[in-house]
Nucleic acid binder design. Sequence first.
DNA 1: CGGATTTGACCAGCGC
DNA 2: GCGCTGGTCAAATCCG
Length: 318
Amino acid sequence: MDNSSWVDTSLDLNINPLRVKSDAPVDAERFGVPRQMKPTFMFQTKPSAKEETGAIEEELNRVSEENRKLTEMLTVMCENYNALRNQLMDCMCKHGEKELHGPSKKRKSASSNNNDNNIAMNGNSESSSTDEELSKKPREEVIKAKTSRAYVRTEAGDKSLIVKDGYQWRKYGQKVTRDNPSPRAYFKCSFAPSCPVKKKVQRSIDDQTVLVATYEGEHNHPHPSMEATSGSSHGLTLGSVPCSASLASSGKTNITLDLTKSKSSNDAKSSKPKTEAPEVRQFLVEQMASSLTKDPNFTAALAAAISGRMLQQNHTKW
DNA sequence: CGGATTTGACCAGCGC
DNA sequence: GCGCTGGTCAAATCCG
């Protein structure tokens, strides 16, 4: 991930794009519009300097307040996400240990139990592994090797079947399956020789930009980057809270959220768990970004912000 | 040169 | 029993 492409998450959502007139002077500089452009607009209507200053201050306060609220909302969202994730991990730990052992005889178990420990990070109902699989298989076969599934959105042009989750994988096979024209790649965890975890990665049949990664088994070693980075402060420390979210939407525009710039006085910050591997963070961040894009409220707010911004910029040119 | 990836061959489960 | 299919193996190839 390229830090240089990150933007302030305080999106400056201008929910009311019609207010461009008064917003423009305030936001122009913040959005990188050269200073010298401002006077041509600012003094167009020739209001008194006092009035104008007051209006600007008022507007600034309003925008700041909006930013603050949005930041709080995001924080709450992240906390909720964390809580759910921790619960999921607990459940997986409790149930997984018993189920893992014993050689998983292929085909009897693999496809039937994808659902029980599903990690559907997209927040979307696409988490359901194909329903026909479930209906075919008897219920008693559901419990076998621990499996989970993750969905990762990639750029449209990206044809690789690489899901970065922080672990080290060795590809040992690739196959084109019947129900999906895109090939399925098979990976084994290569970080520890004895690690039994396998991973299958295949593009979603519905959305070719989405990679479906199916994990089987449990790692019998600590997270590689967890070891490497434990106690260190390199990179971003956001724990499992995504302080930055990178979203490659439709392969063209990168919409990036950077929560690291949220208010330092934020109480939630101190309670956040620390130090998770950057790769894992990125993985989680991608999941969150994916979720956000599917949230109509978020997209509506984003659209409003963008249109507001465009109107502002148009206005500054006049 | 060693490790990772590719890819065709092979194996085993399942349905008919 | 046979064919189809998913999963794995291993030789060949690639790459740093």
